[in-house]
């Protein structure tokens, strides 16, 4: 992802700027979920994932434990 600063919205274009923030946040959420699933699939521990994301183990576990699939069931799916 590369930002061309010449295209950054002018301060008056508030709607565009705020919508872009929402879109970036959505993209970051989606990327984080995919990356956490990938890490679990590769056998990473919650501590390792938490350290990589710069959050606590509790925070990452609370957010993703029920959302991602355990590595074993993912392998069986394939």
């Amino acid at each position: 992802m590369q930002v061309d600063i010449r295209n950054l919205p002018k301060p008056a274009d508030t709607e565009t700027a705020l919508a872009a923030v929402v879109a970036m946040r959505r993209g970051a959420d989606r990327l984080e979920l995919a990356a956490v699933q990938c890490a679990i699939d590769k056998g990473w521990t919650w501590v390792e994932i938490a350290d990589s994301l710069g959050v606590t183990k509790q925070a990452v576990h609370k957010r993703y434990a029920r959302r991602v699939q355990p590595a074993v069931s993912r392998r069986e799916d394939r």
Partner: peptide, 18 residues
């Protein structure tokens, strides 16, 4: 969402890949 990102000069995230 893609349009909003493009509005600030960002290539949109590849939704299908994700």
């Amino acid at each position: 969402h893609a349009e909003a990102l493009e509005g600030i000069g960002l290539q949109s995230i590849d939704d299908e890949l994700l």
